[in-house]
Design a protein around this nucleic acid. Structure first.
Lengths: 203, 203
DNA sequence: CCAAAACTGTACTCACGGTACGGATTCTCC
DNA sequence: GGAGAATCCGTACCGTGAGTACAGTTTTGG
């Protein structure tokens, strides 16, 4: 890794924390470069403008999350051959992972960008939309595997159930931050787990 | 209503739409006053700074939502004496109401503020937290009434179930906006309804 | 009609995003 | 070890938006 790449990474890390804490619009380049220890010229050497910064932040965030999901859901399948059990295990792991974050979940970049959409260009907005679609598709695939073995009791749309996980996580992060109570996120994921259990477990 | 009050109301309405569309930080006073048809001096006559604007916007938003909830859940109780049925009816009404918004739900001010917390003073943040607590308490009370008649099958924490509704609505709004698909909000509320039905309906 | 309320106008300040560009390091590779 | 590219600094500048100050003007309601 070249020196430039290391600087880029440092900028992205600092910027992400700042954006999640106070929003993109309120995050000044001046404060980011102050913390990163470089000048304005240095910053604009790496990113042509704030939108370029947003794009790279987003790519970084999505990649990190994808990797996390890969791990968690692979581990679930590894611990049980039954697709339902594997998913329930993974959800438990997900809840634990979220709960273990020291100061609570820092926030969801997609949600943060969502409420400031006009600030970003089409490419950034398309990136957020695509990542949400990908996550939903991932969950949907898992649910398909479960429904093939355990037909759901209540007639539910599996696409909606897949969406629900993202919705709950995003919503619970907001509630955790608003009420300053990190535990809510974990509890909401476990409640979603109860829902899945209740829906697919045969009587 | 004096003329000043009417102007205040007009400013708040314009500002709310702008904030939900692009975030508080990106909403300029200049554009708000241009649309409202008054000068900067006129604006600062009504609000001493942007934080005062945020406070009043929030009060307005919370009051509107409270009123909407009052109506919807009163209507549910009115249509059925059974607490579970009443809640299920109300959730259906809520889903319909959200779906009927012409351009999709404009967004949740609490969520919008949540991701820009550092921009606001303690009073604004306390206002958001209190309104979330109030909504959760409202739902919790309804769930208590249901659980008294229909003990839940899966052992769930009623506080968490109450939280879940807010989480899902907030999360679904984000997904709706991100994917530019207003229908997701309605479907998520109906899915929560399925969850409630599944949890409390006796076999 | 008169005083208070509801504005207007002008003229500032300060912070921030962004541009421009020349120069100085520092790294990399031959 | 030298050359060229990558990385970064310094400085000066522009436009926009938040906010202040304050004197003056219109509008409203009793």
């Amino acid at each position: 890794m070249g020196k430039g790449e290391a600087t880029r990474e440092r900028i992205l890390e600092i910027a992400e924390a700042a954006v999640l804490a106070k929003g993109f619009g309120a995050t000044s380049i001046d404060e980011v470069i102050a913390e990163a220890g470089l000048t304005k010229s240095g910053f604009f050497y790496h990113f042509k403008d704030k939108n370029a910064l947003a794009r790279e932040m987003l790519r970084r965030y999505v990649a990190t999350n994808d990797h996390l999901f890969d791990e968690i859901f692979a581990r679930g399948r590894q611990l049980s051959d039954d697709p339902l059990q594997a998913f329930l295990i993974s959800l438990k792991l997900l809840a634990e992972t979220m709960a273990d974050l020291p100061n609570g979940h820092p926030g969801c970049l997609i949600a943060s960008i969502c409420y400031q959409e006009r600030l970003f260009d089409r490419e950034v907005r398309e990136l957020t939309a695509q990542s949400v679609r990908d996550w939903n598709a991932r969950f949907r695939k898992i649910l398909d595997g479960i429904a093939a073995v355990y037909p759901p009791k209540e007639p539910v749309d599996l696409d909606d159930v897949a969406d629900m996980l993202s919705c709950i996580v995003d919503g619970a992060i907001i509630m955790s931050k608003t009420l300053n109570d990190p535990s809510r996120l974990e509890r909401q994921i476990l409640l979603f787990r109860s829902f899945v259990k209740l829906t697919f477990t045969p009587n």
